[in-house]
Design a protein around this nucleic acid. Structure first.
Length: 587
RNA sequence: GGUCGCAUAGCUCAGCUGGAUAGAGCGCUGCCCUCCGAAGGCAGAGGUCCCAGGUUCGAAUCCUGGUGCGAUCGCCA
């Protein structure tokens, strides 16, 4: 199904034949032989570097290898020409029937076109969002949520067995702060005048939580010491916040497989177990850390702490797992959590995951090395952990920067964004940048209907196809996918039509490269590119009537419409990975 | 000071894990609708891929050292 892989296989089999003939020495590695689309389409449809890769180990001139290989490749019916170019590139041109076949392939496979078994069922855990349960999700979380979700879908599409997971930070001091803040709102609900001192959360979203708490417990906690209510209020508040966050995620179309509680690690011996594992490897010790180089913190003083020897696994300094007062640092439960990911008993009897991915905000960048060190140590280096950082989202309104301030109550929540522009636009736009590049989000521009706006441009292509299908049906032409797949695709003989089919042929390959690098944004860019090619063909129909999708005869129409429909199928598949609903019409 | 990330056209950004003459959108210049598929399309100008070395058939891409911007740096998660 992946045309590039097919042609690569052809190249490899011809190389093997050359070895059998004595035209090449035995034992050459062909791992680096690539078959790729050439950067410049004028060079042909595909190019291979085989001759250049093999020249040195074979002790031969690249052009000599290329000449022989070219002759062999030309014998394949799919190849219409094979030319040696430059230092030893081999440029291939493929027969129209190959491209026409792609259209049939797409229609036959439908939404599964491009699905890959590259992942070979490997179990991958993608952890994302993991926002503190202290309030609604804001824009920053939104980007992480969109990115993680699209990445998870991408990996699943590429043949991985994916688990989407959210780590609830319900064990640290911040949920105590939450509890105290809710308690204040609770007193307020009882008619008391309350002030919110520094270190509490004054957000309005807690008002109704305080109200609800009042309805639940009455005046039982009023004017009582913290020891009487903290645990219960904390549990109640955390629960309420997680409900809020779940609803936020749902509004965005994100659904997690697992919510994992940090709190569940405490008092159950699981943190101790994880650290024992490290201790047994000689990686836990008591010690005093050096002060940070350069500017010394004002209040720095040497302290003896329990440390994890993360420097043995690539970190720069060892990291504390226990504070000087004997309490765990935040790092300790994180270690235990990742230990759980590695050793977890799965329902199907397997243990743990083959690979872990964490999606963090950029402000957690300093945390990457120690987390990788921990996973490397715990798994004995067998489970790779990739950590993707998502950069800042800069908000704009009408081109003007939109300042956020938690204190002034002008911070923008996920709900604000989704309610204003919709989940689809939000998701697509958030994926129009690499994860490690800052992202501009302009509330007005993302809704603009122009080529400048990739979301619109891609949706518009899909809508145009839908419109063509509708017109065809009105004209009495059958356009169901089965009929279209069986159409006489040899009628697609124009260079512009074949170019569009060739663009479709890139999709399976793109899925694999995007998945390999954990970069879902590539899907968005591809879709924009594909939409551009489609719109280009559509517009050439203005000047060249034979390029229009609706033609006089039903048979010709069906062939042309098959191409359009194939575009729509791939667009829908791509949007599906991004979590965006294709639009049948635009208003 | 350490660490991580980023640096590509006037602007915003891609660049398919090392390939050929580095791409797209916006902006700019010039074309294309009395109607039939123009919320669009075609063509053109525009580049020291931050700098200096290195690796090799070949570097925007990999390595080393710089420069600039951002994030972060032991009892906050």
């Amino acid at each position: 199904m992946n045309l590039f892989a097919d042609i690569r296989a052809l190249v490899l089999s011809d190389l093997a034949a050359m070895v059998a003939d004595g035209a090449l020495p035995e034992g050459l590695s062909t791992d680096n032989v690539a078959v790729e689309p050439p950067r410049d389409a004028a060079h042909g449809d595909m190019a291979t570097n085989a001759a250049m890769v093999l020249a040195k180990p074979a002790g031969m001139k690249p052009r000599d290898i290329a000449e022989t290989l070219a002759t062999r490749l030309s014998n394949d019916p799919r190849v219409t020409s094979a030319e040696v170019a430059g230092p030893g590139f081999l440029n291939l041109r493929l027969a129209p029937v190959v491209w026409q076949g792609i259209v049939g392939d797409v229609l036959a496979a439908g939404a599964d076109f491009g699905r890959s078994d590259m992942g070979a069922g490997k179990r991958v855990n993608v952890e994302y969002v993991s926002a503190n349960p202290t309030g609604p999700l804001h824009v920053g979380h939104t980007r992480g949520a969109v990115f993680g979700d699209a990445l998870a879908s991408l990996l699943a599409f590429a043949g991985h067995d994916v688990t989407r997971e959210y780590y609830i930070n319900d064990g640290g001091a911040q949920v105590d702060v939450l509890a105290r803040s809710v308690y204040l709102r609770y007193l307020e609900a009882h008619g008391q005048d309350v002030a919110f001192p520094d270190g509490t959360y004054p957000g309005d979203y807690l008002i109704e939580v305080g109200q609800a708490l009042k309805e639940k417990v009455g005046d039982r906690f009023v004017d009582k010491g913290e020891q009487f209510w903290l645990d219960e209020v904390r549990d109640y508040a955390t629960q309420a916040m997680m409900d809020l966050i779940r609803a936020d995620l749902k509004a965005l179309g994100v659904e997690m497989d697992v919510f994992y509680s940090e709190k569940s690690l405490y008092g159950t011996g699981r943190i101790e177990a994880a650290l024992d594992d490290l201790r047994s490897k000689g990686l836990i010790y008591e010690g005093v850390l050096e002060p940070p180089k350069g500017k010394k913190p004002e209040d720095w003083e040497p302290r003896k702490q329990t440390l994890f020897k993360s420097t043995d696994h690539g970190d720069d300094v060892d990291r504390p797992v226990m504070k000087s007062d004997g309490a765990w640092t935040y790092f300790a439960p994180d270690i235990a959590y990742h230990y759980d990911k590695i050793t977890r008993q799965n329902p199907d009897g397997t243990v743990g995951f083959d690979a872990l991915i964490d999606v963090f905000g950029a402000d957690h960048g300093g945390y990457v090395k120690r987390m990788k060190a921990a996973v490397s140590a715990l798994s004995g280096g067998t489970v790779p952990l990739d950590i993707k950082l998502t950069q800042l989202v800069k908000l704009f309104k009408n081109g003007e920067p939109f300042k956020m301030s938690k204190r002034a109550g002008t911070f923008v929540t996920l709900r604000d964004v989704v309610d204003q522009v919709g989940p689809g636009v939000t998701r697509f736009h958030m994926l129009t940048r690499k994860n490690d590049a800052p992202l501009d989000f302009d509330f007005d521009k993302v809704l603009e209907q122009s080529r400048e706006n990739p979301v619109f441009y891609v949706q518009y292509a899909f809508a145009r196809v839908t419109s063509v299908l509708g017109k065809a049906e009105e004209a009495g032409i059958a356009v169901d996918d089965g009929t279209l797949a069986a159409a006489d695709l040899s009628k697609l003989d124009h260079e512009a039509e074949l170019a569009l089919a060739a663009k479709l042929a890139e999709w399976p390959r793109l899925v694999e490269t995007a998945a390999r690098s954990n970069e879902p944004h590539r899907i968005a860019f591809y879709l924009y590119d594909l939409a551009g090619t489609f719109h280009g063909l559509w517009n050439r129909g203005n000047d060249v009537p034979s390029l229009r999708f609706l033609q006089e005869g039903a048979a010709t129409s069906q062939a042309k419409i098959a191409l359009a429909r194939a575009c729509a199928v791939v667009i829908a598949a791509g949007l599906g990975i991004l979590g965006v609903e294709p639009a049948k019409e635009l208003r």
